[in-house]
Design a binder for these strands. Sequence first.
RNA 1: GCCGCGUUCGUCUAGGGGUCUAGGACGCCGGCCUCUCACGCCGGUAACACGGGUUCAAAUCCCGUACGCGGUACCA
Length: 490
Amino acid sequence: MSVRVRFAPSPTGLLHIGGLRTALYNYLLARKHGGTFILRIEDTDRSRYVAEAEADIVNSLRWAGLAFEEGPGVGGPHAPYYQSERTDLYRDAADRLLADGHAYLAFDTPEAIEAMRARHTTPENPSPRYDAATRMEMSNSLTLSADEVQRRLDAGEEHVVRLNVPEGETVTFTDLIRGEVSFETSGVDDQVLVKSDGLPTYHLANVVDDHAMQITHVIRGEEWLSSVPKHLLLYRALGWAPPQMAHLPLILSPTGGKLSKRSADRLGLPVNVQQYRDAGYEPEALVNFLAFLGWNPGTEQEVFSLDELVEAYSVERTGQSGVQLDLDKLAWFNGQHLRALPIEEIVKRARPAVEARVGTVSDERLTEAVDLLRERLTFAHDLADATYLFADPAAYDEGGVKKRWKDDSADLVRLYADRLEADEAFTVESTEAVMRDLAESQGVGFGRIIHPVRLAATGTPVGAGMFETLVTIGREATVRRLRRAAEVLG
RNA sequence: GCCGCGUUCGUCUAGGGGUCUAGGACGCCGGCCUCUCACGCCGGUAACACGGGUUCAAAUCCCGUACGCGGUACCA
């Protein structure tokens, strides 16, 4: 049977990097085995629905390069891929469960459930459940007569469908990442399967859809691990074979705690894919980084393209403990991937940031700039810091001036400008030769000239090779800048 | 509280009874290259949570404790 996996986000907000990582692992497994990667929108909670969320999910996956074969927009043999449009399927399943006694109707109001909890709450049991221990004291089709149930139904009384969890059983399964895991049914509550608005909860919908869509492997976050017994009970009750499951370790904040919105804000940490994109991270780098957050190939290679990840991936090599986000490492990955890109591609990615800073720039100029500075880029937008490649410096770095601009600097820079003006060739070789000659004739060290020149020509004390930089700036602009700086800095 | 999952350098990790004086990567610190800053290269710093077992031998297996995380919803 061919591998079929799904990424099933709930459209409640922008796609989180944890979600992207889950999608990535699913994608990798599908590609690795020539299988199918499916996107399914789990929109069964009307109260948390966010209209823009789906577009963000789709855009984020596309940006990351994770194409799906079936899902919203592309369709597929199991359409629709929105749970809100598959209610008949869930209703049928619920009816079967009801008919077989694996589920029951419950009419309890939120107040009645609250009262039950209040009744049973003790210091030892702070959160009583609606389960085998309490269901018989509630208003449901297990405790009410058939006539009474029918009467309430006819009267249009609100009700839910609950899973009738069997007593005294042990549910065991083998997690692809964690090995054998088991739960006692006594610890499982009678989960609501169909809400009073008629829509299914995740638990029912997920089981019904995974079966209908012939999903072979479920790879999802660890927060779902404790729901597995409910799902397994549902598969059994419906007479279906469950898929293989793998529960991923969660991503933690850089300080080790939970990666909550609050803690992320406090640390200034991006958490949504969109925030990473806006911050200038390249998709190739984010993907590589995320892949390594909880997984590794067992070799010493760290920099991987998506295709290479597909080749190297295996679920079994996923770790089991929570992983802390390390933005330093991400930045390193970013530099690795960025610098490896073809020059035209770097130009494309750097353009927005550069133009935001200095206005429209030609392809030629931008290409020269990338060519000059690529080895020094960690982020494409770093190129925008080299404003001197696009305009004369408006100011001179204070620390640099303090350190490098001496009493004789203005004179030396002026002399160098004069000689450059006469240097028809104006090549890397010629400009350097001119400077060496000047240094010799003036009886000063090379550094006595080159540092002030750099400051004068670029406004900053750091950058690429001086002569490569001057050639990129051009003779006319260089001469103009040198004279201007000599004037301004004295 | 209860249930589940986890715990190797600061971080991501390799390792899964002897080859571990525990390997790699990021970060950090030195050095090389060098006109600066990077890149690159070389070197250094730094870890088996704790306590019991099992065994000739344990980072590796078992038990317990501590700690962390998840779950405990008509949210996913």
